[in-house]
Design a protein around this nucleic acid. Sequence first.
RNA 1: GGAGAGGUGACCGAGUGGCUUAAGGUGCACGCCUGGAACGCGUGUGUACGCAAGUACCGUGAGUUCGAAUCUCACCCUCUCCGCCA
Length: 423
Amino acid sequence: MLELRFIRENLDLVREKTARRGKEEQLLDTFAATDSRRLSLLAEVEGLKSTRNTVSEQIAELKKSGRGAEAEPLIADMRRANQRIKELDGELGGIEESLMGVVMAIPNLCHDSVPVGKNEEDNLQVKIWGSKPAFNFPPKPHWELGEDLGILDFERAAKLSGARFALLKGFAARLERALINFMLDLHTERHGYTEVLPPFLVNTPSMTATGQLPKFADDLFRIADHDLYLIPTAEVPVTNIHRDETLEENELPRKYTAYTPCFRAEAGSHGRDTRGLIRQHQFDKVELVQFTTPAQSEEALEGLLADAEQVLQLLGLHYRVVVLCSGDLGFSAAKTYDIEVWLPGQDCFREISSCSNFLDFQARRGSIRYRPSGQKKSRLVHTLNGSGLAVGRTLLAIMENYQQEDGTIGLPEVLLPYMQGRL
RNA sequence: GGAGAGGUGACCGAGUGGCUUAAGGUGCACGCCUGGAACGCGUGUGUACGCAAGUACCGUGAGUUCGAAUCUCACCCUCUCCGCCA
């Protein structure tokens, strides 16, 4: 969420930056009208309340000094004033609700280093690492490899749960677990993150702070009869650890890593990526989350990206980094790097990590602050997060990149300690 | 799920209708004192909205009242005991 006063004073800038994302410019007109209506209502009702407070004190004085009778006309006045206050408060409540609706729907401002563009075709490649592995046989997609080896079972998963679920067996299940441990060990031991294991169900305020609600409820699974949602990413519980808190400046940056399963309804993606592990309702992810001062966040994004890249480098997987253009940027993000891993079985790069700087957009929604050393006024922190990495996609990338002519799968050396040294 | 106790500022803790402008303490910041420190003394110490005056905020939401931290109702959370359970 952007600051109310900032939008009011920079209406054209916000309008222009929202337009760069290619959406919802008319929101800003609604904002302007609703905002000024709110301000005038506020002035009127606060004036009345101010009077009421003064008069109530007078009434107290009169009653105390035994002149209760003289208070009667004042009390009658206040009864009338309260009528009006009630009306205005009611109207104000309605206005504020719709204003909130508008402000919550305005996306973050994109960072000036973000290329302007319409969709993913305008994303800018900023780095490429490694090279495509050479095969002297036609490489297969992971679903064929997995079904042939009996380690990926989509049919039975469909029986259990439906489409977009997978049953991992034997080597695949073991490899999934190995990858989780490998990633967590790397980030905690070498990159300075603190490991956390958060709840996988969160409430509405948590989903609202990170930006999934109110706009994107359709993407979430909700628990019937409870104010609880299955998390679509560990970003939600981990960022919310410090919701409604004030941190000390010397505690920043704070870096957390968490393994969680992630649950996504994938509404609106019917027919896309229907085969294999690419797009599931449930998948595992190791997430990186950072809380920083405003001065630190730009550099922190580069660091977070490097931490995620390190996983692929150690696994020996060919990848590239793209910076998302304005039109492809997520709602809450000011800047996002996607890491895309090479998949020889499908002859393309696919997203395996998304690393974003949210500036104070989430911090304002969740009231996450820090106190600059020696100052009494607190400020909003900056939040960042990124996948480090999506575990399911890492698994399938290993399967496709390390496949052998006989249909078996090799292993990156760094995983051997996690796989008891063998398949 | 049942019974009981409780939720007040960064923290502890007082406060059952109007000098509460939330006492007192701890912590923290700044200043004085000191060769330097401790002790002591003094000052300050939240958030949101608003250009400001000001308004709102004592778990959340409704209500009663001229006036609510304080009274009423509902809900949420924490603790103890019981039941159930991995």
